[in-house]
Design a protein around this nucleic acid. Structure first.
Lengths: 236, 236
DNA sequence: CCGCTATCTTAACGGCGTCAAGTTTGAACT
DNA sequence: AGTTCAAACTTGACGCCGTTAAGATAGCGG
């Protein structure tokens, strides 16, 4: 096993530098934020020269892309686990994935910031794309279920249909995602610091999020679900 | 006077380096994004040595803080103008500020990213704080008006009450902000690229935002406004 | 046991932010 | 007007950054 830092180091060769670099990078990101993040610092923590990572990741963008892929998979798995728990307890599936999204942001801010922080990722990476589509597919599925639309076969997306812009429920999907993503990013990026840093502020915010904000989200969805499947592109 | 780029340059002294640096910085941010932004590049564009800006801004954080202050003021002014237009035309004031928020993000992505992009800002800057509180105050005021709460005297906040966490409408305020901020950041940071880059995608997204998303927001607010002013902290 | 290849090191390049010290300038004061 | 002086800017240097090229090492298949 030996997962989690204790890797064998036989003098010249590291043993599992790729994993060590990813772990070091996440630690640095969590500690110092995006600003204090450098490739050399990560290499230092992995006990390796600054040029060593190049062979495994190509360059900085490669390392960040690997972490972002992890982040998307983390999102997918945490959301699926939350859905499973909600199903078991008869809870709200959509609220479950929204809370899971926030939980990932709070528990792994390093990963989360790499995923959404507009750092330089490799643009064409196929694994990253697959992980992103998977996470997005869960959001789409749960939003449609919450609208009572019925998902064909309950299967996940494996790619984005090129005509996705015409999806009749796109507005609802974007709404759910905006609320969740907006709250999560504002909380970990410090925009809510005036509330977050008061004594008990964090608990208040989390309670409001999984309480009244989720209620408002349900109210918004109810309003939409009651509406007929109108022509989605027509507006104004 | 002589605002707007045409500054006199009498050999050694620049004339208005502070303004020139800010303009150069916004240009670089708009062109190359956060990644390609460097102090030296801004100085180069201003036609000045790399060490020159230090006297005006102290360091990089000082320059970014000045830009962030501009960004908050931009938000405040654009939102107020949108409210004035909504009042004149009998439109939805809350939707107006949400659309104004998105408009600032789209029209001035450089400023917007400095405000919310978790770059290193000076932490204690008083002007920045004042600008932030002003913008936030507009959001608070409009949310309360939308809830039919009545704002005392219609005046703006000039500081954050230390007990703000106890505001009865905090959940609604956070909800509105989350939707708006989430959608805006996702759009300019490329998370919506699969939709945004389809032909006509940008128009579709903007139409959905000011159309069905604002309708959903109103539905969420209506649900809240109908509820009694419950104890905001109790949940679960 | 030998060689081969993946892995890592050392050394160097240009660019970065920042500081210390020196130079120029506009303007205030006599 | 001429002098003085502080503000504005330059030069040069420092350490750190990401990246590359060339060399050293070691595990593994033959």
């Amino acid at each position: 096993m030996m997962a989690g830092g204790a890797t064998k180091r036989s003098g010249y060769h590291h043993g599992d530098l790729r994993q060590a670099m990813i772990e070091a990078a996440e630690a640095v990101l969590a500690e110092k934020g995006v600003g204090g993040f450098t490739l050399r610092e990560c290499a230092r923590r992995a006990g390796v020269s600054p040029a060593a990572p190049a062979h495994h990741f190509g360059n900085l963008a490669g390392l960040l892309t690997a972490i972002a892929t992890l982040g998307f998979d983390d999102l997918s798995e945490t959301m699926e686990a939350a859905v499973a728990r909600a199903v078991a307890s008869g809870g709200d599936r959509l609220a479950a994935i929204c809370e899971a999204y926030l939980a990932v942001a709070l528990n792994r801010p390093g990963r989360f910031r790499v995923v959404f922080g507009r750092l330089g990722l490799k643009s064409g990476d196929e694994e990253l794309r697959r992980a992103a589509v998977r996470a997005f597919g869960i959001l789409v599925r749960e939003t449609k279920l919450a609208l009572g639309r019925g998902v064909d076969g309950g299967e996940l997306l494996t790619r984005l249909p090129s005509s996705y812009g015409g999806d009749a429920d796109l507005a609802e999907i974007l709404f759910v995602w905006s609320v969740t993503h907006g709250f999560s990013t504002m909380l970990i990026d410090g925009q809510l610091a005036p509330f977050d840093q008061q004594p008990g502020g964090r608990e208040l915010l989390l309670g409001l999020y999984s309480g009244r904000l989720m209620e408002m989200l349900r109210a918004a969805m109810r309003g939409s679900a009651a509406m007929p499947l109108a022509n989605p592109a027509s507006h104004g």
